[in-house]
Design a protein around this nucleic acid. Structure first.
Lengths: 106, 106
DNA sequence: ATTACTATTTGATAGTTGTCAAACAATAAA
DNA sequence: TTTATTGTTTGACAACTATCAAATAGTAAT
C-alpha cells in the first residue's frame, strides 16, 4: 500500500474528533505530536505501556477521525497532527484540548 | 432523593468531558443549554427523537462527567451547563466545542 | 536469499455503550 | 385519595471498544 486513506478536511466530524481524543492513550499520543513534528509510530508510542497492535489500532482511529496524518516512509509510518485542517474546520478546538491535557497531565 | 451527586470541579476529568460530548444527542443537548439557562429535561429533549429513558441516561452521563448541573424542583429536573467550573478547569474548551458544534450543525 | 525491522491485520475476549420497553418513584393537581 | 405529570431504574440486546497474542506484509540490511 502506497498511501493511507484520510478524510477530507470538510468531512471531518466533530463528534468523531471528540471521540478520538476521549481516550487517554490517544490523547497522550496527540500531546506528543507537537506542531509540525512528525513521529514514527515506534517513537510515538515508545513510553506507553500498550501492546504494539493496540497502538496500531489507536493510530488508525486517530487517522480516520481526521486528527492525524500518516505518511509512509520506507518501513516507517510518520504521524503528524492535522493542525491546519483542524484549525480551519474547528477553530481553537485542538488548542484548548491540548492545553487542557497539558494542564491536568493526561 | 433531595439532591443529585455531582463531581467537584477539581475532579472533572478531561477524557470524561470529551467522551460525554462525543455523542450527537448529548452534544445537541449541550448546545441547547445556553449560558446561565436552566432547562427542564422535558424541554431539553422535546425535539430529539430519542426515548425518554435514553434521554435520562444521557442526562446522567452529562451530569456525572461534570458538564451539566441538575437541580431538583418539584417533579422537574432543571439542567444547566457548568460553564464556570468547566472554564476554570479547562479554559476555552467548552467554548470551542460549542462554537464548532454550531458551525457544523451537530 | 536470508534476516531483521516496522507496523498492520486477524482472532479472541471482556467490558462498555446507546437504545427501547416496561416498571417504578416522586410530586403536583383534581 | 385518585389521577396526571415528570423522570429514573431495570432488563434486555446489539453494536462497539480496548486490549493482547499470533500471524502476516512490506521494506531494508546483510
Amino acid at each position: 500500500m502506497r498511501q493511507l486513506p484520510h478524510p477530507a478536511t470538510e468531512d471531518i466530524q466533530l463528534t468523531e474528533v471528540l471521540r478520538a481524543l476521549a481516550d487517554p492513550v490517544r490523547l497522550e499520543l496527540v500531546r506528543k505530536l507537537g506542531d509540525g513534528i512528525e513521529l514514527a509510530c515506534s517513537t510515538a508510542g515508545d513510553d506507553l505501556d500498550v501492546h504494539k497492535s493496540t497502538l496500531s489500532h489507536h493510530y488508525r482511529t486517530l487517522r480516520e477521525s481526521g486528527v492525524t496524518h500518516t505518511r509512509i516512509d520506507g518501513r516507517q509510518r510518520l504521524l503528524s497532527l492535522r493542525r491546519d485542517d483542524l484549525d480551519a474546520r474547528f477553530p481553537g478546538l485542538l488548542d484548548s484540548i491540548i492545553t487542557a491535557a497539558d494542564r491536568v497531565g493526561v
